[in-house]
């Protein structure tokens, strides 16, 4: 390999390592700190020792974190809410994208533009009007009819199912699929829904995985403002609300780090699973790359 290429590669690796460190250091800091008592944690934090498992290392913080909050319940709630939202979101947003790309109907362009425009509306601006709406919406559930959505799982799910980003991702991906495939399946006698289910979706593995990961991060990490507004009962709270428990009375930084470490685990599991699915689906369909 010529010298300048070698140098180029070395530089590229340095850059990648540097970027990786930026992402990894906070996580290392979090995990290491969760193992230390508060006093040592605070004194270590001004030096490199913050990233090293030195001194008084013990799982005490984890034990007391479990005492302070019903962590497993919160994780269950978050995973449930996030999971259901993702499933419905992938289904409905991909259907919407399908109709924008493959069907033609009046007003298509305008509606797509409006959906894209919602990109720039931050959730905070619609939170209060949305609260007023869900507060008065009736719901028929297992416990009979209720006249408000407050204090439930569905109030944390339904408003987040459809979103512009997911629709947009699917639209972009669908536009790149060969049009011949759709025409061939129309001639083979497929209905539009069969085209969607039997041809388009099986070829959309990579974008399904991408959209699912993004949606997971959007949901799991951001369950804060909205749950505070609509969930008063502990039994429906997601993990991010659980964090509040550790700031009440005496703030224990070690316990906070322990809590954060625990709630990061589902994210990692989800990410690794989808990454595998992502690579597998690209390899098996061979439609891209």
């Amino acid at each position: 390999m010529p010298a300048h290429k070698l140098l180029g590669m070395a530089l590229r690796y340095l850059l990648l390592i540097w970027i990786a460190m930026i992402f990894i250091f906070p996580i290392v800091f979090m995990v290491i700190s969760s193992l230390k008592p508060d006093l040592q944690l605070l004194s270590d934090s001004s030096s490199l020792r913050a990233f090293l498992p030195v001194g008084d290392i013990s799982p005490t913080n984890y034990l007391s974190a479990f005492d302070r909050a019903p962590i497993l319940l919160f994780i269950f709630n978050s995973v449930l809410i996030t999971g259901i939202t993702i499933v419905f979101s992938l289904f409905l947003c991909s259907l919407a994208a399908f109709s924008f790309v493959f069907l033609s109907w009046r007003g298509q362009g305008v509606i797509f533009a409006i959906i894209l425009a919602t990109f720039i509306v931050p959730f905070e601006t619609i939170a209060v009007p949305l609260l007023l709406i869900v507060n008065n919406l009736p719901w028929i559930g297992l416990e009979g009819i209720k006249n408000s959505w407050i204090n439930s799982y569905h109030v944390q799910i339904i408003p987040f199912i459809a979103d512009a980003l997911t629709i947009f991702l699917f639209v972009q991906y669908f536009r790149d699929l060969p049009k011949d495939l759709i025409e061939a399946s129309r001639i083979d006698g497929a209905t539009w829904f069969q085209v969607y289910r039997r041809v388009i979706m099986p070829l959309s593995g990579p974008i399904i995985a991408t959209a699912a990961i993004l949606k997971f991060l959007m949901m799991y990490n951001n369950q804060l403002l909205w749950p505070i507004m609509v969930v008063q009962e502990e039994s429906y709270r997601p993990v991010m609300l659980g964090l509040q428990y550790f700031f009440q009375l005496n703030t224990q930084w070690g316990e906070i780090m322990a809590y954060l470490t625990i709630i990061t685990i589902p994210v990692l599991i989800f990410y690794l699973l989808l990454q595998k699915a992502f690579i597998a689906s690209i390899a098996s369909t061979g439609i891209k790359g």
């Binding site: 060969p178 011949d180 495939l181 061939a184 098996s284």
Partner: peptide
């Protein structure tokens, strides 16, 4: 119809 690109279903 037989397409120029064959249009076989890759999956």
């Amino acid at each position: 119809m037989v397409f120029q690109s064959y249009a076989l279903y890759p999956h």
